[in-house]
Simulated scan of single mutants.
Amino acid sequence: MSILVSGLVNIETTLHIESFPLEYDPVRYPFWGINTTVSGVGVNVSLALHTLGRDVYFCTLLGNDFFGEMAHDWIQQQGLATEFFVQQLPQTAQSVILYDKIGRRQIHVDLKNIQEQRYPLELFESALERVSAAVLCNINFNRNLLEVAKRKGISIFTDVHTIADPDDEYNRDFMAAADVLFLSDEKLWTTPEKAAQDLMARYGNKMIVIGQGERGALLLEQHSRPVQLPAIKTRPIVSTIGAGDALFASFINFYIDGFSPLESLKRAMVFASWKIGTAGASQGFLNSYELEKLYTQDMPSAI
C-alpha cells in the first residue's frame, strides 16, 4: 500500500553542546560535534517509511538555490522518488539544532518564505491517484490540500507536534481533517489523558497518539479509554531530535498494514527508541527485518 507524504525539506545543522543553558564563550571547538544533512519532517517521515519498505510519493517545495539542489540529489540517492518536488522557492529552509549529552535539544528553524507558498493542486491530485493514505504535515502549503484529500476519501495522518490550546489557530485545520492525529505532550494545557479526550471531542478523530518522551506514549481510540504505554530503551540516547517523526511514521506503516493501533504503537516505540541513538533527525532508521527482530527477540519484557 502506497503513501503520499507532503511536508517540509530543510538543511539541518546539529551542534553538540555540554549542557543547557549554554554559557557564553567567544569560540568553541566541538570536534566531530557539528553535522549538516538534509532533514525536515517531510524527509524524516518519507525516509522512515521507505526504510521500512513502503512505497512513498513525496510532495514538497524546495529552493532553486544550492541547498535545494543538494537536498534534491541527496533525497534521490536515498532511493526516494522526486517527481513531485517543486523547486520554486528563492531559498531552501534551514535549521540549527543544539543537543546536549543527555539528549535534550533546542531547535531553531528558518522557513524563509515557504509559509507564503502553495503546492500545485494538479500535481497533488496526480500523486493522490496512486495512494490510499496521505501524511499531510502541518506546513502552510498543505492547508488547502486537506479538503482535496478528504473529498477523495483518502485517510489523513497529521502530526501537529506541540500545541498549548485545543483550539490552536494555526493547527485547527489540520486537527479537524486528521483521521489519525499525533502530537507531543511538551506544551499541553492539561494532562495527556484529558488533552486527548478534549481533542477527540472537538475534532472527532479516529485515534490520537501523544508522544511523551521518557514517559512513553498515550493512545486514545474512539469510544475507548486512553491507554498509556511505558517508554522503551533499546540503546543509549544521543539526541531526541526526530523521535516524534520516527514514532509517527512507523505507526502509520504498521497501522495501514492491518495491525491494531496498540500493536502499531508498540512497534513504533521500539523504532523511535532505536532512532534516537543517532544525532540527525533523518538518520538511525531500522528496516522492517531489523525492527521485527528487535521487537520480538530483544524486547520481550517491554512489550
Results as ranks from 00 to 15, higher is better:
I3A: 12
L4Y: 09
V5P: 02
L8Q: 05
E12S: 00
E12I: 07
E12P: 05
T13V: 07
E18Q: 12
S19V: 09
F20S: 14
Y24M: 08
N35E: 13
T37L: 08
S39D: 02
V45I: 15
S46V: 08
L49T: 07
G53Y: 09
D55Q: 14
Y57T: 04
F58P: 03
L62N: 01
N64V: 01
F67D: 00
A71E: 03
Q78H: 13
L80D: 02
F84K: 01
V86Q: 08
Q87T: 00
L89K: 05
I97T: 11
I97P: 03
I97Y: 04
I102C: 11
D110A: 15
E116R: 12
Y119H: 12
F124E: 01
R143H: 10
L145F: 08
L146M: 09
K152E: 14
I154R: 10
S155R: 12
T162I: 02
A164I: 04
N171Y: 05
F182N: 05
F182V: 01
K187D: 14
L188P: 01
L188R: 05
P192I: 03
A195G: 01
Y203V: 00
G204W: 03
N205H: 02
N205T: 02
M207C: 05
I208S: 01
V209H: 01
G213W: 12
E214S: 14
R215Q: 14
G216E: 10
L220P: 04
P226H: 02
P226M: 02
V227Q: 08
I232N: 08
I232W: 11
T234G: 10
R235H: 15
A243E: 13
G244V: 03
D257P: 09
D257V: 04
L262E: 10
S264W: 05
R267W: 12
F271S: 05
Q283I: 05
F285L: 10
L286K: 13
E290Y: 13
E292P: 14
A302T: 10
